[in-house]
Design a protein around this nucleic acid. Sequence first.
RNA 1: GCCGAAGUGGUGAAAUUGGUAAACACGCAUGGUUUAGGACCAUGUGCCGUAAGGCUUGUGGGUUCAAGUCCCACCUUCGGCACCA
Length: 824
Amino acid sequence: MSYQHQDLFEKWFKIWEDLKIYQVSDLLPKEKKEYILVEFPYPSGSGLHIGHAFSFVGADVYARFQRMKGKNVLFPMGWDAFGLPTENYAIKTKSKPQEITAQNTATFKRQMKKLQLSFDWSREINTTDPQYYQWTQWIFIQLFKKGLAFKKEMPINWCPQCKIGLANEEVVDGKCERCGAEVTRRNISQWIVKITDYADRLLQGLEKTNFIEKVKRSQINWIGASEGAQIIFPIELSSSQKEKIEIFTTRPDTLWGATFMVLAPEHPLLDKILKVCSEKKNKEIKEYIKKSKKKSDLERVDLDKEKTGVFTGLYALNPVNKKEIPVWISDFVLSSYGTGAIMAVPAHDQRDWEFAQKFGLEIIPVIKPDQEWNFQEKAYVDVEKGTLINSGPINNLSPDQAFSKMINWLQEKGIGRSAKNYHLRDWIFSRQHYWGEPIPMIFCPQCGWQPAKEEDLPIELPKVERYHPTDTGESPLSQIKEWVETTCPLCGGPAKRETDTMPNWAGSDWYFLRYIDPQNQEKLVDLEKARKWLPVDIYIGGDEHNTLHLLYSRFIYQFLWDLGVVPSEHPEPYQKRISHGVILGPDSQRMSKSKGNVVDPEEVMGRFDKYGSDILRIYLMFIGPFEGTMAWNDQSLTGIKRFLDKIEKAIQSSLDFSSTKDNCSINPRMETILHQTIQKVSQDIKETKFNTAVAGLMEFLNEIRAQSQEKKISVKILENFLLLLSPFAPIFCEEQWQKIKSKSKSIFLENWPEFDSRLTQDKKIEFVVQVNGKVREKIDLSTGLKQKEVEEIIFALPQIKKYLLGKKPKKIIFLPDKLINIVI
RNA sequence: GCCGAAGUGGUGAAAUUGGUAAACACGCAUGGUUUAGGACCAUGUGCCGUAAGGCUUGUGGGUUCAAGUCCCACCUUCGGCACCA
């Protein structure tokens, strides 16, 4: 940043800070509150990049606008600072994650201030601060107490060479990112949070929100509720050992077409099957299970992949026709979805069909489609349409009718029931890493798992010398004996602490509550304060958080709502969610350090003598739609500089002309343009259409420059113009404002201009004349003319006569003050 | 694979939701100004055509007086997919 801008920045920053214009009081009336939330960043080592600047400036323009509209705006910022990159960096540089985080947040904050982001820093939070995460831990304890957190064996990615657990991101093409060894799956005992208990509420709650459609859709799809039936298939392992396989299906009406069954390789029945089968089979099955452990879920269900599987040698009974059907094992069935077992209806499911083809299994069509179909060629999957066949008593019914009939029948016979299944899976909450919130649980050999006492919170992360994950797959915390060994909160006997830490989501799913009451020592948040500020009026964030972060966050909020921690009148935390776009590197690739395409906002600001941050801010808002994805390209920056230069010049020449009295008369046309611009800019900012708001301001400047003779523009017009521009260019507008008003109060303490709707109407318009839908002429007309009057004028025009060729019009379409279309 | 979004000039993009396609800006061209360069000012700039005129919003079809916008089919690109945050 150049000296000139640096000086202005420091000058105004201090004045605004002293005025406390960004700080918001809890005492102001609730009616005028506006809670504007923008996702807090992960403070990486490379500093703020241009994408951060883009979304934060957008949120900031919106916040400044609302303040000037007289709203009591809560616009806070904090740090989501736990995470793998910091931990990895600490390992690499042999430094402490705490110190790195402190450095990174300091850099981020300094850069944010340079960008003139108007956050209320008195409410700053940091997820790695024990004063903050004691409440993250407190929430976990409540989840445990309500039975929503439990331990279970779950698979993780495991690198057998590095002997550590890997995040999905660290697995590239099935290989370890660090050493290149083949990654396997390994079961370890992990904390699971039962988000599925809230599936229905998370769905229904969406109706109360005003999220943009695509966000709602992604939440609905992720929860993925499907109606169907749970059905029991009996199976005989031996003459004395009778078992059953429970399956979930969305199409119980196709039960007559079920010709085989498939178990997931993790299915619990496999242990029993392995005991009864032949030695050869045993070996074959074990081999298959071992292989499937290497694959991720995504690979397993990939339709393009060749189906694999192994026959158990056993048969189950199809409950409708008592037919014996073979039981197979295949990894395209997931243990985490449904019951981990399926009935296969190869005629009407593509995956089942491929499996049947490969292993030569029977295919029985049970739905006859309306069009031609050969079941030897592919499955008929459009099962809502058609007629039931080969299905005994439900023949000739429609699939819908058959569905209800089957549910009733299954229930009567006691072999099945109506069931709802969710795509949503329970939340794996454990991480075997150091840099996260310790899970506040203690294992006592006598009393089992016990939560830490709430008065002992926070359970602080101990300072360690080594952060490297351990050979056993346990968290590095397990190495610190004096920390691990503790006493049982229940019986007082010797016990051990949980050494896993929480996922990154844990700290970020409730942070918006802490901003409301960041210093509270007694409670997570004061209920009265929460009542005043909730719900978040607008939540601005990236697409990548529209599904998971938002869902987890809503879940935790709903859980806290059940506990009575948050006000009962607000069952949902976020009123509106909008997602901002992404700025890609100049090469149209996602910005990343390794690609070397990261654009640094400080460098961009530094290119301009004066108004560095103002130019960058306006440019970012002008470059494209706020929701859009765009590649960084700084060609047009110079256009913004010209824009500001022109304004400065216009103001100077107006002041030179009339420093005391405003004797430039405002003509009616200028009045109209002013009010139209106030309307447009206000509306656009409200709808986060910042790019067209800026374009509107540019148009306004061009118009008033053209309208005013001798380049003198009325000071009143210029004042309004500066007010409209001020959310985009704070320093520039404040400087110019002071120039005009001399020793006035800050522009940010002024009110946003209001428009008069009577004055936004043009007196004259360009009227469009079409012949057969083609534009043939445009004429200047005064507004308010009736159809007859317009017809009289246009039929006299020689250009129009030419097109009519003396014929009589068949039809005339007339839109007042806009267009006439003559059809001949 | 599943889910979602998007295809408009040389470039970034607009288009009040069915009513003037290309606003605003960059770039480019010509002229002016300038010792030169830069900066600035003025004019022009979708494509074809000397012109009259014709054509134009990924491709093909449809609805309508009228389609970038609505409907059907197709092509292409991008994003998310549960341990990155």
